[in-house]
Computed example of a mutant assay.
Amino acid sequence: MSASQALRHRVPPWAVDAGLVALAVVDAWLNLFDEGTPLVWSCVAIGSAGLFLRRRFPLAVFLLTLPMTVFMDVAVAPIAALYTLATATRDRRLLVGCALLHAAAGTLAWPLPETFTGDRTWTLIQFVYTLATAIAPVLCGQLVQARHDVARQLTEVEEVREHERVLHAQTVLARERAQLAREMHDVVSHQVSLIAVQAGALQVASADPDTREAARTIRSLSVNTLDELRHMVTLLRASGGKETELAPQPTLADLQRLIANSGIETTLTGKLPPDISTTAQRTVYRTVQEALTNVRKHAPGATAEVRLWHDTDHYGVTIANTAPIRPAVSLPSSRQGLIGLQERAELLHGTLTAAPTPQGGYEVALRAPARPD
Rank of each mutant, 00 (worst) to 15 (best):
K271E: 12
L272G: 07
P273L: 03
P274A: 15
S277R: 01
A280P: 05
R282I: 08
R282P: 12
R282E: 09
T283E: 10
V284C: 06
Y285Q: 01
R286G: 02
T287W: 10
V288N: 07
A291G: 06
L292W: 12
N294D: 15
V295R: 07
V295L: 06
R296F: 08
K297Y: 03
A299Y: 11
P300W: 03
A302P: 08
A302H: 01
A302D: 00
T303A: 14
T303N: 12
R307F: 01
R307L: 08
W309H: 11
H310M: 00
H310L: 04
D311I: 12
T312L: 12
T312M: 05
H314A: 02
G316C: 06
G316F: 02
V317K: 03
V317E: 10
V317I: 10
T318F: 06
I319Y: 01
I319M: 14
I319N: 11
A320E: 15
N321I: 01
A323R: 08
I325Q: 13
P327R: 07
P327K: 04
P327S: 05
A328C: 01
A328R: 10
A328Y: 04
A328L: 13
V329L: 15
V329A: 14
S333I: 08
S333Q: 10
Q336S: 09
Q336F: 09
G337R: 07
L338M: 11
G340P: 01
E346N: 09
L348E: 00
T351Q: 09
L352C: 10
A354D: 13
A354L: 14
A354T: 05
A355F: 07
A355Y: 05
T357K: 14
P358H: 06
G360L: 02
G360Q: 03
G360K: 10
G361M: 03
